[in-house]
Amino acid sequence: GDEFSIVRLLSVIWPGVDKWRDTRFWRWRYKENPFGPPIVWLAEFKGEIIGHRAIVPVYMKIGGIEALVGLVADSGVHPGFRRIGVYRNLVSLAQKESAERGMKLTYGVYIPRHLKSYNRYERLGEVCSMTSLIKVIDWSQLLRKFSGKSLFLPSVPEHSNTENFNVFKVNRVDERFNILWKNVSPAFPIIVKRDMEYLRWRYFGLPTENYVLYAAEKSNKILGYCVLKERVIQPQVFSEDHSLLSRFLKEPINEGLIIDIFGCPNAVKVLLHKAEQHFKEKSVDVIHCRLSEKNPYLKIFTKLGYRTIPYTLHMIVSVAMNLQGKIMDEKKAFKEFLRLSRNPFFLKKQNWCLFFSDCDQV
């Protein structure tokens, strides 16, 4: 029953963000999640909500097991109540509950300057960075939007390589995506579970977004999929995602986002070609994807002309290991955290395979 007050607070913390214009996004993420009830802790002052800390339950493949974990999302404190310990208390309470609920770990994608609030609780800390990749579709159009002058540059030639795949738009996710997950997931040591149930909730259950999902198949077997959306970057409009870019713009940029991509390498290559074709038809200026820094798909993106461009803020992945029934500052729990923090499996950057969709921004 607090959804309206929560969304009102979040719209103050992140002004201008579309998803906080009403309660639909919050209800989808926290009330309609099929993987269990969320962890939500609120801070109040004189009957008004001034703080919000939330953890979204998801399943993650960790080595050879699939475990319940938590994605830290949509957490913050009203600007008028910061630096007085409100956020620290919310973090402690949420982390303790996540351990009691059996979540093996919690993770979040942060801007490094925000991590001071988390370091005390997250004994693993930073495990990897997120890499932003872009591919410009029309350089002449893009440079005009920065300079305000018309320029002519040869367009990037279009490559078409279907390798006998049938690529089609998905309107309904079926059991074949469970088979895809079962066949492809062993190649990824740590990855959020992408089965039929997850895909239906993540991409077809959200009323505020119009995601487009393409699949690549052979012999009626799904061998990969990608998820796309478009958004507009406005000139001089502050956004933590584009603050380094928008200040130099003369005109809005149409950006195509590859939200998620998963499958065997050949299918991923074909799907990237399809994504480029789709975005050209939508008059997109630049394609943007974000992957964990050692993601195995990075080589495929690079071969197809994507480049790492630091026009977005540096984002890192930080992880907390949870100990059921332990309070964060107990000596016994602290020693156990130190033991877990030395586990090389979690500290190897190449073991973490995360995508745009695994963050809480899109």
Rank of each mutant, 00 (worst) to 15 (best):
T106G: 04
Y118N: 00
V58L: 10
Y118M: 01
S155A: 12
V170Y: 09
S160K: 15
G85D: 04
M60R: 05
Q95K: 13
K145S: 07
K182R: 10
C128P: 11
A94E: 03
P154D: 03
V58Q: 03
A73G: 08
E163L: 12
L151G: 12
Y59P: 01
K169S: 05
R123I: 15
L180I: 04
R144F: 14
Y121V: 07
S129T: 08
N119V: 10
V91I: 12
K116T: 10
E126R: 14
L124R: 12
I55P: 03
L90F: 03
S160A: 13
L133T: 08
R82E: 07
G70M: 03
R120I: 07
L68D: 05
A99C: 14
A94S: 13
F177Y: 04
I179P: 02
L133S: 10
E158M: 13
S129L: 10
F146C: 06
G148A: 05
V136T: 10
A94W: 00
V156F: 13
V69D: 01
F168P: 00
M103Q: 14
S155Q: 15
V72L: 09
C128I: 06
N178R: 03
T162N: 08
M103L: 15
S132L: 13
G70P: 03
S117Y: 06
G80P: 00
S155G: 15
A73P: 07
G76R: 00
P57G: 01
K104R: 15
L133E: 12
G80Y: 02
L143T: 07
R83N: 11
T131E: 08
R113H: 05
N171K: 05
I84N: 02
V167I: 14
S75F: 00
E66R: 08
A94M: 01
K145C: 08
I55F: 02
R101G: 08
N171G: 11
S98Q: 04
R123C: 13
I65Q: 14
P57M: 04
R172N: 15
S160T: 13
P157S: 12
Y107E: 08
G85S: 02
N166W: 09
E97R: 12
P112S: 01
P79W: 11
R88H: 07
